[in-house]
Amino acid sequence: MNAIEVRDLVKTYGSGETAVHALKHIDMDVAEGELLMLMGASGSGKTTLVSIIGCILSATSGSCKIHGVETVGLAQSRLPKIRLDNIGFIFQAFNLFPALTAQENVEIALDLKGVRGSSAKARAAELLERVGLGEKLRTYPADLSGGQKQRVAIARSLAGEPRIILADEPTAALDSVSGRVVMDLLQELAREQGRAIVVVTHDNRIFDYADRIVHIEDGRITNSVAGNMPMENPRAMQASTRIKRES
């Protein structure tokens, strides 16, 4: 089953002669268990596409389904719930809360889901343990390395048990060793837990982690190639065939 289905998606800023067409009739699917990398130059439309998939930005037209639920045209007030239930975000700059410890950073995501108190603490500790930071529960972001911060961000993104994770340049600020640790984690989330992972990246050190690499240019998908696609994930293979190459 596809976790994400994008059809004929258009995003235009402004109108008339000054209109900027950020996305031009995008079609793209991402299967459960697939790790897809989205590539393109600055201003190509990657962030806009991820923002629309992440229900942060509204599309001008077209369709974007998250686990079968149409999000284009949905009332703004309903979008936070869809994000909360389905999507985890990982940011290039980590976006951790500097005033909170690693454990509290994860707890805040649980708080959004209504999990509080001792159960939130235990769950946050468990998630940080899973990303190898069991010893850093009470450490503030300022005292963590870049790789550790990104792992806290991954733990936080997992707090709501999302089936989709959107990662924006997750390794850009990391050295190669830390970058691989982060990508190992993301790959594990896709392979072992069946989560759909979309990674926006320029980092050619991590291409071998991709099941599929999609190139976007001037708001259009120009190329879609299979990456290190595992044979045991045929749904990802099927999804890739749906991508229409546009000239």
Binding site: S77, P80, K81, R83, F89, N95, F97, L112, G160
Partner: peptide, 16 residues
């Protein structure tokens, strides 16, 4: 403001 934007992306409602 960046922290609030992050919270919003994580699914926080405006009320939160």
């Amino acid at each position: 403001i960046r922290e609030y934007g992050t919270l919003k992306a994580m699914g926080a409602t405006n009320g939160y």
